[in-house]
Design a protein around this nucleic acid. Structure first.
Lengths: 165, 165
DNA sequence: CTAGGACTTCGAGCGCGCTCTAACGCAAAT
DNA sequence: ATTTGCGTTAGAGCGCGCTCGAAGTCCTAG
């Protein structure tokens, strides 16, 4: 996923600081969003391909105006929406869910509660995934520190023979 | 992924405790591994489908003996290997990588250094993903707490108008 | 005048990880 | 005797999220 590169950038920018709400807020406008950008500029900025940007548009996730030559012109709102979309994709929200979310956004203010519910549910998904990964990390660490190669998840209590192949 | 259910079980078993090396070790043999199991029993235990188990076997990740009727008989080693494989899949290691890892295991002790390197690299991948998710979580929290619905990642500094749709 | 380069659309193709179907075998239960 | 149930195989199919190719348009530089 080309999208991963954006997170690399962001993490680099963060350094080792714990991400806080404030940090996120700052990240949002690390650089000002120009009032309009070409597809190449947006692709570069979000670290995804022009192909992907067109794909997102086809999928109904953004609407993008055209200039006199029929070329896409991304305004600041479109770019901000794409930043949001990219973040959500990266955190594991599916295209389908994002399409639904965007439908809600486009449907108006009265859908705010449902949007909140989606975000809350997604939050839970992220938390769950964090716990899974933390556990996996511990498991891998265990494997590295105690032996280092066999597939049996438990190394022999008494290393009389090699762990199961 | 059906595999997710296993982690659900494991997380439930863990409760809110921080996963530690010891906890992982205990988890490994939460229940004793019988000396042989049918495909249905293994599927049930690992919370993945019999289809998937056959698929893993076809992919060369495990070797499974047959009984007189040609039915699969999973011995303890096979089950332990599958526990390992499931864990690694869940933590994001690809089938391709696992195939390589298993080749190394089957190739003998002299591949231990390379296996260690793979594990270490995978460990880094997990850590990176944890950081990404932590950041995403902060972003989602930010969105939930500050506004709750628009796609613009930054809500207006002064909420004069609605954030970008 | 021509070549290059960035863009357009439409639609096909791909890699991954399963997931399922069809047709069949065997054994115990009715 | 047949139904039920659990297993087998080979191979096709699917959902996802891109990713790419072909053919064409337009502008600019040489």
């Amino acid at each position: 996923m080309a999208t991963d590169d954006l997170m690399t950038k962001v993490l680099d920018a963060l350094g080792d600081a714990q991400p806080t709400v404030e940090a996120i807020h700052d990240l949002t406008d690390l650089a000002e969003v120009p009032s309009s950008m070409t597809i190449a500029e947006v692709a570069d900025r979000l670290a995804l391909s022009a192909h992907t940007l067109r794909y997102y548009e086809r999928a109904g996730l953004v609407t993008v105006a055209r200039d006199s030559q029929g070329h896409r012109v991304y305004d600041a709102d479109a770019v901000r929406r794409l930043v949001f979309l990219t973040r959500m994709r990266l955190s594991g929200m599916s295209m389908r869910e994002l399409q639904h979310y965007i439908e809600l956004v486009d449907a108006g203010e009265h859908t705010v509660p449902e949007r909140m519910a989606m975000l809350a549910e997604h939050r839970d998904t992220i938390v769950r995934r964090l716990r899974e990964l933390t556990l996996s990390l511990a498991a891998v660490d265990y494997k590295i520190t105690t032996y280092g190669g066999a597939t049996g998840s438990d190394v022999e209590r008494r290393p009389s023979r090699d762990a199961a192949a």
